[in-house]
Design a protein around this nucleic acid. Structure first.
Length: 885
RNA sequence: GGGCGGUUAGCUCAGUUGGUUAGAGCACCUGCUUUACACGCAGGGGGUCAUAGGUUCGAGUCCUAUACCGCCCACCA
């Protein structure tokens, strides 16, 4: 805390007290909500970061946005719960540990399941504490006493309960289907976990001879010649004239010799390739469908690593890539290959390891999802759940309405084991929440659990209720569920948000949250996605160490809008640091004038023009801040408070206040100054918690605020105060600042020596009596010796600069003014502009359609402009006449 | 093949129910070691709001096309 201004460094040192304040908040239990059933809580469940390593800037953005909401609602007096957690992250985490093992020259298979799990848990321990530490540095005010991990007993029970429930309901089933297989991860994946990318490939044209007449043949076109080993048919469109006569005939599969039928299927396009498609049901989703419809055999030709298996005969053991080369060569040598074309097509890649996906038929578990999707669609359509920004509603609905069954089994070790046991004797499947000891059908004790684990997103989908205690009816679940806001990145709308809505409604009968706020991705200064391989990642901790957490928080949210990506570079971070420094110095300045009698108590009868102005501006800023924070407009909110503190408090109020402070005026500006700063610190606190706490504590002490709470984070968030609405005084003040600007401008434009005081007479009607009190202030602000008069009762001196403002005329005599012509030219130009403006306004105000349709206030505004422009003309003419003499 | 977003000052971006004179930060130019702050102060230049139409008294804001950039979804071998 700042005790003595004179001892303080000129630059704010962000690092110094961040930890101290975080520990202070934690020690006082401010982050843990008190359940008060008479109040509606504000609840936000943190999207659990993956335990895959360091947090990146995306996490910093997430944490900042959420902390802003949480701190804001807490200050509104709502019991506020922000529940943190971490995700075991299935494949992603397993890959990380496997890589570490690989460095030791080991594989998970070599060390075995048990030892591998031990390694995983060790990793979890380190990673979780690291992530928590990083969050702490950011200033997150989450309730760590409720921190959850997806593999914890609570969430695990929720997973088993949900599985059993859906299994019993027939919504979870096991089946032989074609799924996306990653040969590196050796597991099935859901459709969402496959990224499709266009790749330059080739289209090979291959002849398939007829069985009854090998001199004739059908030519097929394929992007994957190696799958010929698994072909069990050739499909053509039933409407294709070229092939109508051969449907039902058999072909001899080149290199293999198998007889395969020609079948007719509508999905085959007549225009593409040759119109004849080699059909490999085991390795192509389309072909699988065709195969199902025509009872084609499924011949799997790849092992789990996508190498040719025993079904590939001579090619056994070759990788996909090698097999392709060899098969193409053999086809060519044997005269089957007729043509090769370049061809660009989409190829699926494993989201985690980028390996090309191999579609494979295998036995997997699926969720029959459509019945779950229906209420989830309705929840959004009805507005029970709103999505910000709104455009994602359409994206959500479109996906949900075309949803396909979800493959939930993974051939991994790391994750929730599928709660199904197989009887070794009667083969019966027992699905159970509790681990069974015997087969539920034949009571044999020879049972073994399914080897597979669940898709990591299965447990994520339960997160809002599983973290609050469900399936148990805990006090937390009863009070905090459904939650208020789900804040996350738009790229996991389907992965996570959609599934939470479906699972939440299915399990609890209630939506899991009422608002979804989607933020964009943070890119580097060039707009590129940050990635370790590109080396363009910015580590939040590095930024915090150099610039402070507040500067980082400021930088990640300034200028952002919901759902839009943003770029982050050094300049933005510096802007945040500079703002913190500015605020720090403003407070440092104020503190030098405080003493044991200092107070924020304002005597409204003593308020000066600038006092009323700044209070009125504070009041409007307060209203705006509340509005923007409610409306999720965080980028606008930070701009708003930044501009108020810097552009109004620092640039004007403090500068003007200096006059009274330095002259020991009996009517001190200090109570207003302290009030405005104290309130501003509250307004800013959700965004920049550390510096505001630091400075607020200093103000609290200096202003003897003994009755206020022990931390700014538990003060009330400021609200609109009718008593501080001084709109008229704001206008007067605007005229005064405009006068100062004109004087400064003249000084600068006419190269007035820095030390020379210029003189000026200002005619400003009724305002003169008020403004006269500001002669001193103006002289300080603009180095000008001014006198304010009501009316101009003398002619403009021959050599003077004249400025005509709406409510004031400024006359600056220039003894050495050498260019009267230029001055006249300037005034004449202004006059011409004013005349043009008059014409425009008069025309507008005569327009019947405008008068009849525009709202009154718009018309009044135009009329006022016309009046002003006429008045300005008159004054300008008068001045020009005087000068011309 | 559908869908979405972007196109505003040199750069990065705001601009939420349409209101006539479009803002900020950074960069740039000029002048300031003025006892809160050079992480600063004062002043200044810079935009026909991508293009073409339309609706409207009034369009950066609404509608329709077009162009370029980016993203998402989709089983065309």
């Amino acid at each position: 805390m700042i005790d003595n201004e004179s001892e303080l460094p000129k630059a704010y040192d962000a690092k110094q007290n961040e930890k101290k304040w975080y520990d202070y908040w934690l020690a006082n239990g401010y982050f843990t909500p008190k359940i008060d059933k008479s109040k509606k809580p504000f609840v936000l469940i943190q999207p659990p970061p993956n335990i895959t390593g360091d947090l990146h800037l995306g996490h910093a953005l997430t944490a900042t946005l959420e902390d802003i909401m949480v701190r804001y609602h807490r200050m509104l007096g709502e019991p506020t719960l922000w529940l943190p957690g971490t995700d075991h992250a299935g494949i992603a985490a397993q890959v990380v540990v496997e890589r570490a093992l690989a460095k030791e020259g080991k594989t998970r298979q070599e060390i075995g399941r048990e030892a591998f799990m031990k390694r995983m848990w060790e990793w979890v321990g380190n990673c979780r504490s690291h992530i928590a530490n990083q969050h702490t540095r950011l200033g997150v005010s989450y309730d760590n006493t409720r921190a959850a991990f997806t593999l914890d007993p609570g969430p695990s029970l929720a997973v088993r309960t949900t599985f059993k429930h859906l299994y019993d309901k027939g919504l979870i089933y096991k089946g032989e289907r074609i799924t996306n297989w990653c040969p590196r991860c050796t597991t099935a994946l859901s459709d969402l976990e496959v990224d499709h990318m266009d790749e330059k490939g080739k289209l090979w044209y291959i002849r398939y001879p007829f069985a009854d007449d090998p001199s004739k043949f059908i030519t097929v076109a394929t992007t994957r010649p190696e799958t010929i080993l698994g072909d069990t048919g050739v499909a053509v469109n039933p409407e294709d004239e070229r092939y109508k006569d051969v449907i039902g005939k058999e072909l001899i599969l080149p290199l293999v010799g198998r007889r395969i039928p020609i079948v007719a299927d509508d999905v085959v396009g007549i225009d593409f390739g040759t119109g004849a498609v080699k059909t490999t049901p085991a390795h192509d989703p389309n072909d699988f469908e065709i195969g199902q419809r025509h009872n084609l055999p499924i011949i799997n030709i790849f092992d789990e690593h996508a190498c040719i298996n025993e079904n590939g005969g001579a090619y056994k053991g070759l990788s996909r890539e090698d097999a392709r080369i060899k098969i193409v060569k053999d086809l060519e040598d044997q005269g089957y290959l007729t043509k090769i074309e370049d061809h660009v097509h989409a190829v699926g890649h494993c989201q985690r390891c980028r390996t090309t996906i191999e579609p494979q038929v295998s036995s997997q578990w699926f969720v029959k999802i459509q019945p779950l999707a229906e209420p989830a669609i309705e929840a959004v359509k009805s507005g029970e759940i709103t999505i910000v920004p709104e455009r994602f509603t359409k994206v959500y609905l479109n996906w949900m309405e075309n949803i396909r069954d979800w493959c939930i089994s993974r051939q991994l070790w790391w994750g929730h084991r599928i709660p199904v046991w197989y009887c070794d004797d009667c083969k019966h499947m027992t699905c159970s929440i509790e681990t069974p000891t015997e087969c539920e059908a034949c009571h044999s004790t020879h049972i073994h659990q399914d080897d597979d684990v669940l898709d990591t997103w299965f447990s994520s989908g339960l997160w809002p209720h599983s973290t609050l205690g469900w399936p148990n009816k805990t006090e937390d679940f009863e009070y905090f569920y459904p939650t208020s806001v789900m804040e996350t990145a738009y790229d996991i709308l389907f992965f996570w948000v959609a599934r939470m809505i479906m699972m939440g409604i299915e399990n609890t009968g209630k939506v899991p949250f009422h608002h979804v706020y989607l933020h964009g991705l943070i890119r580097d200064e060039k707009g590129e996605k940050m990635s370790k391989t590109k080396g363009n990642v910015i580590d939040p901790l590095v930024v915090i160490n150099e610039y402070g957490a507040d500067a980082l928080r400021f930088s990640v949210i300034s200028g952002i809008t919901p759902g839009n990506d943003s770029k982050l570079g050094k300049t933005k971070i510096e802007a945040g640091r500079n703002f913190a420094n500015k605020l720090y110095n403003a407070v440092r300045f104020v503190l030098r004038y405080t003493d044991e009698n200092s107070t924020t108590a304002i005597d409204s009868s003593k308020l000066t023009l600038e006092d009323k102005w700044i209070l009125s501006r504070l009041n409007k800023t307060t209203r705006e801040m509340n509005q923007m924070l409610q409306d999720f407009q965080f980028g606008e909110a930070v701009r708003c408070i930044h501009d108020f503190i810097w552009g109004e408090i620092c640039d004007w109020y403090i500068e003007i206040a200096k006059v009274r402070l330095n002259s020991n005026d009996a009517n001190s500006p200090l109570p207003v100054l302290l009030t405005v700063i104290e309130q501003s610190l509250r307004l800013l606190h959700p965004i920049m918690p550390f510096i505001t706490e630091e400075l607020w504590q200093s103000i609290k002490k200096a202003a003897n605020l003994t009755d206020t709470p022990s931390s700014v984070m538990i003060t009330e968030y400021p609200q609109w105060n009718e008593a501080w609405d001084y709109s008229e005084d704001e206008e007067k003040m605007d005229t005064l600042t405009e006068i100062v600007r004109v004087l400064r401008n003249v000084r600068s434009e006419y190269d007035v020596d820095i030390n020379k005081v210029i003189g000026a007479t200002i005619y400003c009607g009724d305002l003169a009596s008020t403004f006269t009190h500001y002669s001193k202030a103006v002289s300080v602000l603009a180095k000008a010796d001014v006198s304010f008069e009501e009316k101009r009762n003398e002619e403009t001196p021959g050599q003077a600069i004249v400025e005509v403002l709406p409510n004031a005329e400024i006359i600056i005599p220039m003894a050495k003014l050498f260019d009267l012509e230029a001055q006249l030219a300037k005034l004449n130009k202004e006059l011409t502009e004013a005349v043009n403006e008059q014409a425009r306004l008069e025309k507008h105000l005569k327009d019947e359609s405008f008068l009849s349709r525009a709202p009154k206030q718009v018309i009044d505004k135009e009329q006022a402009r016309l009046d002003a422009v006429l008045e300005k003309q008159e004054k300008l003419r008068d001045h020009i006449k005087s000068l011309e003499k």
